[in-house]
Every structure is written in structure tokens, then in C-alpha cells.
């Protein structure tokens, strides 16, 4: 291999290595945000890596209390009749959601996830 060839090969090697950088970052599995949707619109985006905090959501007089932090989130209380959102318990994986249909509130953990168990949607 001539000197010029070696330079080209080195350059391409560097280019390949650089192209792998975004792949490395995108394979992170940790959820980073708890996103709260109220009536179909994004209401708040809360960081998951802070200490546990309680967040109150009120829509048309209906109240739900969420707990977010330490890498997880959940409905703690809700004024809905069925309590399904509270029974859902803690969410701790990216893509996991808890839903309060009567109060029209959705809690969803967001983060890139290439784990085998990640899903794009869920029946219920």
C-alpha cells in the first residue's frame, strides 16, 4: 500500500468510527422523561433522574396526583371512579404508560430503547 492509500484508509477508518458514535448513544435503555399528556396534549415533561416529587394535575375539577423521580413514575391518587390508573403501579421502563381515561390524563416514560422487551404499543 502506498503512502497516499494509507492516508485514505486512515481517513475512512476515522469516518467509520465517527458514524458509530450516534449508534452508541441511541442504544441507551434508561428512560429519561416522564411525559404527562392532559386531554391529548403534552402538559409537562418531567426528568426522571431527580428525587421523587409529587405532581398534581387538575382538569375540569378532576384531580390526579402523580409521583415522579428516582427513575420511575406512577399515579398515586385519582378522582376517577375505577382507579385503574392507580392500580397500574410504578412505571420504570421506556415506553410504559399509565392511563386515566375518566380524567383524560396519560403518563408515559420516554427514552430511547433498543431492549428486546421494548414495545411500540400495547393492547388492553
Amino acid at each position: 500500500m502506498k503512502r497516499g492509500d494509507r492516508a485514505v484508509a486512515l481517513l475512512l477508518g476515522l469516518l467509520l468510527a465517527a458514524s458509530a458514535v450516534p449508534l452508541l448513544f441511541s442504544s441507551s435503555t434508561a428512560p429519561r422523561w416522564a411525559v404527562v399528556y392532559v386531554d391529548g396534549r403534552e402538559w409537562r415533561r418531567l426528568p426522571l433522574d431527580g428525587p421523587l416529587e409529587e405532581v398534581e394535575v387538575v382538569l375540569e375539577g378532576r384531580r390526579s396526583l402523580l409521583s415522579v423521580g428516582e427513575g420511575r413514575a406512577r399515579f398515586v391518587e385519582s378522582s376517577c371512579p375505577d382507579g385503574l390508573c392507580v392500580h397500574r403501579g410504578w412505571l420504570d421502563g421506556p415506553g410504559e404508560t399509565a392511563l386515566c381515561l375518566p380524567n383524560r390524563i396519560e403518563l408515559r416514560l420516554e427514552g430511547k430503547d433498543d431492549r428486546e422487551e421494548a414495545v411500540d404499543g400495547q393492547t388492553y
Binding site: H87, V119, G121, Q122
Partner: peptide, 19 residues
């Protein structure tokens, strides 16, 4: 392919039987 979770009928909404 899209990966769709199937609800476990014995568990709260969102808990999976499988994918």
C-alpha cells in the same frame, strides 16, 4: 416488525402477557 405487547388478562392495564 412492530412489537406489540398483549395485555395479561390477570394483571393491571399495561402489564404484558407477551409480545
Amino acid at each position: 416488525p412492530w412489537r406489540i405487547g398483549i395485555q395479561d388478562p390477570r394483571k393491571p392495564r399495561g402489564e404484558r402477557l407477551g409480545i
